[in-house]
Computed example of a mutant assay.
Amino acid sequence: MPEIADEAVEVRAFWQELGLPGLIDVHTHFMPERVLDKVWAYFDAAGPLTGRPWPITYREEEQQRLDRLREFGVLAFTAMLYPHKPGMAAWLNAWAAEFAARTPDCLHTATFFPEEGAEGYVGEALSKGARVFKAHLQVGGYDPADPQLDAVWGLLAESGTPVVTHCGSGPVPGKHTGPGPIGAVLARHPRLRLIVAHMGLPEYADFLDLAARYPYLHLDTTMAFTAFTEQMAPFPPDQLLRLLDVQDRILLGTDFPNIPYPYVHALRALAGLGLGEEWLRAVCHDNAARLFAVPGSARDR
């Protein structure tokens, strides 16, 4: 595991050289300890949804993980959590609200599942200040166009609340992954601020097509472009310049702490795309600062 002080120097040098006040990471995981333990055990066992061995680089206590992000200079981050069955979401949301209350640099995160009462607890989470939601179609195994979720998507679209959604078919396909199922939701709710996790891998081009069609759709960089991901789902070189077309809608995400490499590697992978410093500044800070109105992170341009 990287020494926190040593890696922090490298991470901070990355954003300081870009003239940024820090990073904003829209895809980090914090969840109840017993839930995270089960997630880590699944990765350790190389479960069927991971597709390959997946060592956890930052297997630390919660406070140590928070200290790392702060030492890295991450100004705001999320607590991505998600249910895999009915009856979990409301309980996870209660935990997330408490976590956000004691963690002011965390963007208050919530989640949902297609079940009776989903509209009610999503509305409650919004009333308590939830700023971003997570939907994991691969783990949850549900159709995002399930009628039980239509009112939920409507609430989120109307309120302008972003939803980070694992809807691509990587690392392994799910019954309802790919651009088709979530595309049906966007057709019904075109103003939904959907953030496609992992750049939609491996259907990168298809999700860039959706981004061209829906101006409120964003993508996060979580694990995309890294050596680990390029081995199984390489980003198509002929699609690279399209990332400039949606420069204002790509957001830094990392999957911290559940990544099989150091945090700084993800940043270097973005720089290695050769898309320029303006692109990096937008992706690593400016787009998320604008989308989430992150206080205290404005900078002079």
Rank of each mutant, 00 (worst) to 15 (best):
L20C: 14
G22H: 06
I24G: 15
H27R: 11
F30G: 14
M31Y: 10
P32Y: 05
E33V: 09
L36I: 03
D44H: 13
W54A: 01
P55K: 10
I56V: 15
Y58I: 04
E60T: 09
Q63C: 00
Q64W: 04
Q64M: 05
R68D: 07
Y82V: 02
K85M: 06
A94C: 02
D105K: 05
H108R: 11
H108E: 04
T111C: 10
F113N: 11
P114A: 04
E119S: 12
G123D: 04
L126V: 01
S127M: 04
R131G: 01
V132Q: 03
A135Q: 07
H136E: 03
Q138W: 03
P144E: 00
L149G: 01
L149Q: 09
D150L: 06
A151I: 00
V152T: 08
T161V: 10
P162L: 00
T165K: 08
T165I: 00
T165R: 10
H166G: 12
P173F: 03
G180E: 11
V185W: 10
V185F: 07
A187S: 14
H198W: 05
P202N: 01
Y204E: 05
A205Y: 00
D209H: 05
A211P: 14
Y214R: 13
P215Y: 07
Y216G: 02
L219I: 07
T222H: 09
F225Q: 01
A233T: 11
P236Y: 04
L240F: 08
L240H: 08
L243V: 08
L244M: 06
L244C: 08
D245M: 00
D245H: 12
Q247E: 14
F256L: 06
F256R: 09
P257D: 08
Y263P: 14
A266L: 03
G272D: 06
G274M: 07
G276H: 10
W279C: 10
L280M: 10
V283L: 06
N287H: 10
N287I: 02
A288G: 13
V294M: 09
G296D: 07
A298K: 15
